[in-house]
Design a protein around this nucleic acid. Structure first.
Lengths: 263, 263
DNA sequence: TAAATAGTGTCTGTAAGACAGTATGTT
DNA sequence: AACATACTGTCTTACAGACACTATTTA
């Protein structure tokens, strides 16, 4: 290695580096259904070099060493690109899931992926383009991507054949989500504020796939410091309900026990 | 990209890839103290190109694309190299902690590290060389590494200045360990089998830094399917105690509640 | 008024913590 | 016997779940 390098520490280039990508599992709840966002891989006619043509996969992409200061930046950038979500003003719930890396998972070579999972209130596709206002090239980008993306029921997605090892990754994410929903406030990040306690409970029930007791649920939520009141709201048909916002929109709450501890 | 490539899918080489490494936080308990294994970075006289000379850091290394089939393989290989632990016969507790990746964390360039944490029963340094028997070059390797490694009290290590962002990583690992110890059987992986319930309770107390109630502790451990009896053992001074082994040595148990749920 | 939804109150069961008591080993 | 350690039993407390009850809105 030359001593004349301007860098104090020369990068180690004397071995093969794996490919590094970031994938995001983006969950939302709409129509009482847990959904996940998938992208479609390019067809053979579009590109001969891309593996798994026309299969669905988790949205993601390579780290841009020149563009991103950190993996978290990469994840936020991808989230914005794929959903049009206004990440500058409203922080979505974004958490590291895990990493996968092996010689076999991508036919293009040894690859590593850093996987995040995100929880978002549902954004109508028609509103996504308008959310990324201003730059028309940018909103074109979003719209073009949208044509190749779908919100699909999470369990349905699991049963389909996805590209790469994305079935395993999605299953891991679903397991983690359902497990954490038992003892955290994560479903609150799937709703637009303000929301009511019955709405929040339905969201819990949709994710968990089972009914919860109303009384116990309300006690748990109100005894924690999770929520702050935000005026009466008309939730549906009958009586008005109290609306709530998150007391701390950037952090989930962990409850001392899970639901149904006895089983 | 040339069409004449022998690979079906040409690797994407048209952008700069980050460096990829694996680091492991290896915990053990000895002398009623939670310890972590640290390596010393080479001095300036040994190498002018290595950053953070002579500081301690977490053991780890680059992924060897030719040597490792997966990141998990890399972690197990590193664990074996650094501790001499017989990973072929006794599976240590090894779990993904998280990943860190940014332009700034390594002065040699944009880098990503995949961090695992491991729990091991203490291995006396004198026994480590003999554990990796056979190949003398291999055990030399182990002994040479040992000269530059220390088992250090976890909290003490946190207060020192470590290389790279390893203070943050170690702190994250400690938080995760202490948090999971509240509601899982993780400390059982810090003891050599067979062990007694009082020994296990002391291990919990060492990690958590507080006393636990004996009666509640025993009820929790025995009501779970965690342990199987393995004959009477002389634990210390007084009465003999029942020895136990793990019913399932490859998996931790999650208890329905944490200790001291009320606070 | 009936139906639908929101919210409360009471009882019960489960498991953790406190702590006193018993059992079995060594010196 | 004295002591140290291992183990058990009983009482209390905290909180989730079951479920019946009240409250407020719309059709």
């Amino acid at each position: 290695m030359p001593n004349s390098t301007p860098l104090k520490y020369a990068p180690k280039q004397d071995f093969v580096k794996p490919l590094v990508s970031v994938d995001i599992i983006i969950f939302t709840v709409v129509d009482d259904t847990l959904k996940v966002l998938l992208s479609k891989r390019p067809s053979l006619s579009e590109s001969k070099d891309e593996p798994f043509p026309e299969l669905y996969c988790l949205p993601g992409g390579y780290v841009h060493v020149g563009m991103d200061m950190s993996l978290h930046d990469t994840a936020v950038r991808k989230l914005q690109e794929k959903t049009g979500y206004d990440t500058a003003n409203v922080a979505p719930y974004l958490e590291q899931l895990a990493f996968w890396g092996s010689a076999e998972r991508d036919p293009r070579g040894w690859s590593v992926t850093q996987v995040y999972f995100a929880l978002l209130p549902f954004i109508k596709p028609s509103e996504q383009a308008t959310k990324t206002d201003g730059n028309p090239a940018e909103s074109n980008q979003v719209e073009r991507n949208q044509a190749e993306q779908i919100w699909i029921q999470a369990d349905t997605a699991c049963e389909q054949t996805l590209a790469f090892d994305h079935n395993e990754i999605l299953q891991t994410a679903l397991n983690r989500l359902r497990s954490k929903v038992e003892y955290t406030s994560l479903p609150a990040f799937l709703l637009a504020e303000p929301f009511t306690l019955p709405q929040l409970q339905r969201t819990y029930e949709v994710v968990l796939g089972r009914k919860l007791d109303k009384s116990a649920f309300r006690k748990r939520m109100l005894d924690s410091e999770l929520l702050v009141e935000f005026g009466q709201i008309q939730g549906g048909f009958g009586r008005m309900a109290m609306g709530y916002k998150l007391a701390n929109p950037s952090e989930a709450v962990t409850f001392p026990r899970g639901f149904k501890s006895g089983e």
